[in-house]
Design a protein around this nucleic acid. Structure first.
Lengths: 195, 195
DNA sequence: CGGTTACTTGACTAGCTTCAAGCCTTGTGG
DNA sequence: CCACAAGGCTTGAAGCTAGTCAAGTAACCG
């Protein structure tokens, strides 16, 4: 949970119900509001020239999203889309800044969030610079498993999603997973991947 | 400039002179200090299995670096190396947190910095997901030029550096630049690239 | 059970990487 | 002022492999 819901409402925030598939903002838009999820899920992705999506992040629970371009006064580099029916609180930039100034603890907690996200971005980047598909996929899996636990866990992602995160094609992911299964690097049963 | 130098010293920060090539911290290390450059330049990069470097960022002037893993209590995902003789102030994590609490304006300014960096990471990621070398190189150049100015400027990077930023090989960069020159997308004179 | 979504496989191709060799530019020391 | 060293740049040839297209098959859901 980022900013206390009551504070948001007190400063003039309004809740809004959005259905799955709705766009909150589009790549290139100018940010004007601070957004915070009350419930549901929002997916942020960038699109390259050919229309291939790359998932920049997925937000759930009470998390806020899209604040960096808002604070940095830049256009949105990604599109935000509700990936499930959701409820979102939105509040204008000015009022958001007021909250940050009036409640220093809020600023510190946002700082924590940004620190975590910057760390995640740095590690995601490492996934993308991998040379082979195998390297990228293992990098992604390690990230998902929080990097430490040793036992093999079920990867709750479709091949298409793995492809979106690693910037590979579905077919390449499938072939790489098969090879990794044969080499004992992952385990596949009933189309489910364990790593 | 991130945190006022006097405040850092008042809270117990110490300056240190480091010569070009010295490592400030290595990938995998546990963060214990907040670092801020007084003068010089520091390069942060990640290394993949084969030892190929990817430049995560370059810091100059009075900027701080390496704070995200420090605040998020994670290991450093990258290595920091002085790319020029430099002077660096360092201060323990506890004292850094004290400063953030005692000076809310410092927290807000760090928030701004993080917001800008997150924005940059999102756009750098877009460079990496480009399909062709040309797309990646142009993405990098657009980023360097701050995305707006229209006139062609000299790109102050070696082909190897462009390769490091775009995750391509030197030869690929050279061949792509040549093709882009022939197609009028960049201009090359005396081995210098204008875009 | 029918429709939709996810997954799989094969053949082909474009183009990036690799390796090897040589050239150009710059700076340094005699 | 020249010679040489070193680092950056360039080129060519060959191989590999991820991407693409097309055609299925398997799982899931109402």
């Amino acid at each position: 949970m980022q900013i206390d819901h009551n504070i948001l409402i007190a400063y003039g925030g309004v809740s809004k119900r959005v259905s799955k598939g709705s766009f909150i903002f589009m790549e290139g838009d100018t940010p004007r509001f601070f957004f915070q999820l009350v419930e549901g899920e929002v997916k942020m992705f960038s699109t390259n020239i050919e229309g291939k999506e790359f998932i920049q992040g997925v937000f759930t629970g009470g998390n806020s999203f899209g604040e960096p371009p808002l604070l940095a006064s830049k256009c949105y580099p990604s599109t935000a889309q509700a990936s499930a029916d959701s409820v979102i609180v939105k509040i204008s930039k000015d009022k958001f800044i007021n909250i940050l100034q009036d409640y220093p603890s809020t600023a510190l907690s946002l700082l924590q969030t940004f620190a975590r996200r910057l760390y995640n971005k740095a590690t995601s980047t490492k996934i993308l610079i991998g040379r082979t598909p195998e390297e990228k996929i293992l990098g992604f899996f390690n990230k998902v498993r929080s990097a430490d636990c040793n036992e093999k866990i079920l990867m709750p992602y479709t091949r298409q999603e793995i492809a979106d995160y690693t910037n590979l094609r579905v077919e390449t992911v499938i072939r790489a997973l098969l090879k990794m299964h044969e080499e004992g690097k992952v385990f596949i049963k009933d189309h489910k991947v364990y790593c």
